[in-house]
Amino acid sequence: MSVKDALTTYAENTWCPGCGNFGIFTAFKNAVKELENRGVKSSHILITAGIGCHGKIFDYLNLSGFYSLHGRAVATAQGMKLGNPDLYVVAFVGDGDAMGEGLEHVLFAAKRNADITVIMHNNGVYGLTTGQFTPVSPKGFKGPSTPFGSVEEPLNPIKLVLDANATFVARGYSAKIKELTNIFVEAILHKGFSFVDVLQPCVSFNDTYEVYNKNTFFVDRIGKTKEEAVELSTVSEKIPLGIFYKEDKPVYHELVLEGKNLFTGSLTKEERVKRIKELLKIYCL
């Protein structure tokens, strides 16, 4: 395939020039290369995405997976992981997509510590539909659906997923590609539910480059408790970046499948039929 690099498809890139998604795209490709250095084959990394500008990354990344529905990437990702737990599954989601349409999937995936990585492209707007406010847009945000300013308080995604028992929680910034790459690598290698909130300016409808360039900093430690993690991540005048929380806990697929792999360990048709016949004999008695 004649492409710029092995991880990029031939698809025409339609993100706006200067879009924060480019930074996430680059950082993710770097992360895949780093993971390959650490022994994770790119063929074992599967991706899925929701709908929105973020979702286009599915077409641009030359990796296998499912281009899912609006808000449903996290549900899809959990299915993919259960389908073959030997694979690494990454769900790309938007802030509207994941905190609006698909919030319940995110919370329940965190609750059951599904061993997937959720990368939330957080630009604070529904950019693909020209800039409506999302559940994380600040109070007073003006957009086509809130011309006089949003009257609602925003959600705090990091606090939400920590409350729901996420075991890896971080925040990155699309313009800090080196640090974002490291966060992605750590998140993907973490066994359990990893959530990465990526601050991503939308040059067309919510250009936050100046604010983020000036006001972000990296925390110097990982929270020992969830409370400390929330404290570390809290946005005030400055916006903290980095890994806020990391915990080792049993993961969903191991608890449910008890170490089985339904794909590699699937039965032959003959064996399935034999077992069904045995079962039916029991129930027919």
Binding site: H44, G65, F66, Y67, S68, N84, D86, L87
Partner: peptide, 14 residues
Amino acid sequence: KFPPTDSIIKFSSY
């Protein structure tokens, strides 16, 4: 085809 394989297997809702 099913992953993992050297081929790229893309499913799309669009």
